[in-house]
């Protein structure tokens, strides 16, 4: 995993070798605003799974500092009593500059846990709330964790989360307004979701382990729905294609950056743009044409 995270040259070999072993785990994404209780709920779900005889992988993602590149990864504090639990493997990842609530190596870490035979993989994303749709491409089931009093239904629409979430959890349901929040969500869902899977809305108090069982039940129903409609297989196929595209893009970006740093002709061009002697749009068109020609 370390190799994969640090983009070690052997990463490619490792990933190629494990691909045939992936595709069995149920991948569950948890997303939602900071402080909604994603870590706590993740921890409770993991404990429930282990009690039921399943093994769980947990991936916790926290932001890297844009200034130092370092990160403070604090999710394990909320899952403290899982550190000695043999059925649970927890890995914390920093975003390392990637947007969209995921870390650059999230897909690879998930695949490694999948290949290692974990039954369920819980992926907890950065709690920014509105840019985390990427998890829905990687996960089979996406859980949106929210809390009472975070704005009305319009907020929900704006974030586009109605489209990505398969299950809604209103956490901290012992607070005032929980029922109303759940009702609002349910109304919105009834109005916008037509046919197929209508995401259930569950109430929970993760810190007291209330509602965890109901959430897990909803997850299992969603799994049956996916398997019954062929989407379970489809998601696995889509995921592989997505990983291919992501890697092509990453490799292309890598080559472009290297060329911009090393190619003297391009560096000259960069200088001319900086000096105001060449407009950036014309320069960009030229650079793309130049790189494309040279590399094919």
């Amino acid at each position: 995993m370390k190799l994969v995270e640090n983009a070690d040259p052997t990463r490619q070999q490792v990933m190629q070798a494990i691909v045939p072993w992936t595709g069995r785990a149920h991948i569950i994404g948890l997303t939602g605003p900071p402080g909604a209780g994603k870590s706590t709920l993740t921890g409770q779900l993991a404990r429930l799974l282990v009690k039921g005889g399943l093994t769980a992988g947990v991936v916790c993602i926290d932001p890297s500092s844009p200034f130092s590149g370092g990160a403070f990864l604090g999710d394990r504090v909320r899952m403290a009593n899982l550190n000695s639990e043999p059925g649970v493997f927890i890995r914390s990842l920093a975003t390392r500059g990637k947007l969209g609530g995921l870390s650059a190596s999230t897909a690879e870490v998930i695949m490694l846990m999948d290949a290692a035979g974990k039954d369920v993989i819980l992926v907890e994303t950065v709690g920014t709330g509105q840019v985390e749709h990427q998890i829905s491409h990687l996960a089979d089931t996406t859980i949106m964790v929210t809390v009472p009093g975070l704005g009305d239904g319009i907020q929900t629409m704006k974030a586009g989360i109605l489209e990505i979430a398969d299950i809604f959890v209103v956490n901290k349901a012992d607070r005032e307004g929980a029922e109303a929040t759940a009702r609002d969500l349910a109304h919105m869902l009834d109005e916008f979701i037509t046919g197929g899977w209508r995401p259930p809305v569950k109430l929970a108090v993760a810190s007291r382990n209330e509602g965890t069982g109901e959430v897990w039940e909803a997850v299992q129903q969603h799994r049956l729905h996916l398997q019954g409609t062929g989407q379970w297989e489809q998601k696995r196929r889509d995921r592989l294609v997505r990983i291919m595209i992501d890697n092509v893009q990453a490799q292309a970006l890598d080559r472009i950056n290297r060329a911009l740093e090393q190619d003297s002709l391009l560096q000259n061009l960069v200088r001319r743009v900086a000096d105001g002697n060449l407009d950036p749009y014309a320069a960009a068109t030229f650079v793309s044409g130049y790189l494309w020609q040279r590399q094919t």
């Binding site: 990160a71 990864l73 504090v77 403290a80 550190n83 914390s92």
Partner: peptide
């Protein structure tokens, strides 16, 4: 340490086995 560019996983209170 984070500001020095490291990734720090904070565990809170733990005994050696869990650490």
């Amino acid at each position: 340490l984070r500001d020095a560019g490291m990734e720090v996983v904070y565990l809170g209170n733990q005994f050696p086995e869990a650490i």
